[in-house]
């Protein structure tokens, strides 16, 4: 909200009445835009607490709110939702940590360390971004199958431990940091490692937060890859598991939205916690997650 006040300040030279009007207009527009984004969420949560008959209508307020949909999901022994939840949480966290470490190291190397073939190698890396990810699906699957890693967590994780986008993103960021800061550290006798950890990385907090969010969300929402790798119900992730509780041809919107709510909560919490970093880094890098 803090960034919003900037255009308002500019109108301060005008008379008080017109200032009030422009404020009213501005906030009306902002509220409308806000509603546009928040209504689907509201619908999700209200539908999740509606009994079946009410889910057939489009109404905003449940007449007889019930937790039946959540009970259906959590009570059924054939639906290990909590286990799926933990699987998703564990995998997303592990992915995020691994991507942050590997991508920031690689990005720093491409940005600051001179080595033969650096640009060619980086070009090659970028070239893989052009290819649609789905192309790697079968080759990756065959690799994992040959390693006998089907139905294992490492099988799900292996192909995504580092991401090309993250490397690119971190490299761009490190290049934007004034070289003089690092040179000053070298003059004081710091090694490459020390410079990286003490000078460059702390400056990149915002970028790391952005990357963390993007990675976490990608992993949290990923459907196809975990679906392909995991055939054991207890090891599936939340999106895959929840897809299996919907019928082949039928949708029980109440249950569906209860599942969606369970999936959305960690993301909402994460967003709330990291909101400042996200806004900052979007402003800084001009990138949106």
């Amino acid at each position: 909200m803090a960034t919003v006040s900037v255009p308002v300040e500019r109108t301060s030279s005008r008379p008080a009445g017109s200032k009030l009007i422009s404020r009213i207009v501005l906030y009306t527009v902002l509220v409308l835009i806000g509603l546009f984004f928040v209504l689907p969420l509201v619908w999700m949560f209200t539908t999740a607490v509606k009994p079946f008959v009410e889910t057939l209508q489009i109404t905003w307020i449940p007449q007889e709110p019930t937790l039946q949909n959540f009970r259906d999901i959590f009570n059924d022994p054939s639906i290990p939702v909590l286990r799926w939840f933990l699987n998703s949480l564990g995998l997303a966290t592990a992915f995020t940590l691994s991507v942050l470490v590997l991508d920031s190291l690689a990005g720093y190397a491409y940005a600051r360390i001179e080595f033969p073939g650096r640009n060619a190698l980086f070009g090659l890396l970028l070239a893989t971004l052009v290819m649609p990810g789905i192309m790697f699906l079968v080759p990756n699957f065959i690799t994992i199958a040959r390693l006998n890693w089907l139905n294992t967590y490492q099988g799900v994780m292996a192909p995504g431990l580092a991401g090309v986008f993250g490397v690119f993103f971190m490299r761009q960021f490190f290049q934007g940091i004034p070289k003089e800061l690092e040179e000053a550290a070298y003059i004081d006798g710091a090694s490459v490692w020390t410079t990286f950890f003490r000078v460059s990385l702390p400056l990149a907090k915002g970028a790391l937060a952005t990357l963390a969010i993007i990675t976490f969300l990608t992993s949290w929402n990923d459907f196809l890859w975990p679906l392909l790798i995991m055939n054991v119900r207890e090891r599936q992730t939340l999106p895959v598991g929840l897809a299996t509780i919907q019928g082949q041809y039928t949708f029980d919107y109440g249950k569906l939205m209860a599942g969606a709510a369970v999936t959305a909560i960690p993301v909402l919490i994460l967003y709330t916690l990291l909101q400042r970093y996200i806004v900052q880094s979007v402003a800084m890098s001009g990138l949106k997650g």
């Binding site: 079968v138 699957f141 065959i142 994992i144 040959r146 392909l228 897809a243």
Partner: peptide, 18 residues
């Protein structure tokens, strides 16, 4: 094991011998 998108699963599994 009930599989959503099971044709894709079958095809990929066939490619990987699984």
């Amino acid at each position: 094991v009930a599989q959503p998108q099971y044709l894709e699963k079958l095809n990929t599994a066939a490619a990987g011998g699984a």
